[in-house]
Computed example of a mutant assay.
Amino acid sequence: MTTDTKTALLDSAEHASRARGFDGFSYADLAEAVGIRKASIHYHFPTKAALSAALMDRYHACLERTCAQIDSRHETAAGRLKALIDFYRDALNGGKTLCLCVSFIASRESLTDDVKAKISAFRKMMIDWIRDVYVLGSADKTIAGITDPAQEARATLALLEGAHLAARSDETIEVFDEAVQTLLSRCRP
Rank of each mutant, 00 (worst) to 15 (best):
G21M: 12
E32F: 11
A83V: 03
E75A: 15
A106S: 13
L51T: 12
D29V: 10
K118N: 04
F22E: 05
S52W: 04
R37C: 00
A78M: 03
Y27E: 07
D57P: 00
T112Y: 08
F25C: 12
D86V: 02
A19G: 00
P46R: 14
D57W: 00
A13E: 11
E64Y: 04
L100C: 08
R89F: 02
A68P: 03
L63P: 00
D90K: 03
H60R: 13
Q69L: 05
D29R: 10
C101Y: 04
C101H: 03
C101A: 13
F87Y: 09
H44N: 13
H44Q: 01
R18I: 01
A50M: 09
D113I: 14
A49E: 15
T66D: 08
T66K: 07
A91G: 03
V115N: 11
S72P: 02
E14R: 13
A68M: 01
I85P: 01
F87G: 04
L84F: 03
A117M: 10
G79R: 11
R108A: 12
G79T: 11
S52R: 09
L98R: 07
T66P: 00
I85A: 08
A106Q: 14
A31K: 07
F22I: 07
A31T: 05
S120C: 00
S72V: 01
K96V: 04
R37Y: 12
I36S: 08
G24N: 12
F25L: 12
E64N: 01
L51G: 04
L111Q: 13
K96L: 02
L100H: 07
A117K: 14
A106E: 15
S110N: 14
I119F: 03
D71P: 01
K82H: 06
S52I: 01
L100R: 07
T76N: 06
I70G: 05
A50N: 09
S52H: 07
L30M: 12
T66N: 01
Y88A: 11
E14C: 06
E75I: 06
M56T: 09
G94D: 07
R80H: 03
H44D: 05
R108V: 09
D23F: 00
H74Q: 14
A68W: 01
G21C: 14
A61K: 11
A28N: 12
A54C: 06
T97V: 04
Q69T: 07
L92P: 09
K96S: 08
A77I: 04
C62I: 02
T112L: 09
A13T: 09
S103N: 01
S17L: 03
C99R: 07
Y27F: 15
A16E: 09
F87C: 01
R37H: 14
D29Y: 10
V34N: 04
T47N: 08
I70Y: 06
F45E: 09
V34Q: 06
Y27H: 14
C99P: 10
D86K: 04
A50R: 08
S110Y: 12
A33V: 06
L30C: 09
C67W: 06
A117E: 13
A77D: 08
S52Y: 02
T47D: 06
Y43T: 15
E109F: 10
D113V: 14
D114V: 15
A28Y: 11
G24K: 15
L98F: 08
A50E: 12
M56L: 14
S120T: 11
L111P: 13
I36R: 11
L84K: 10
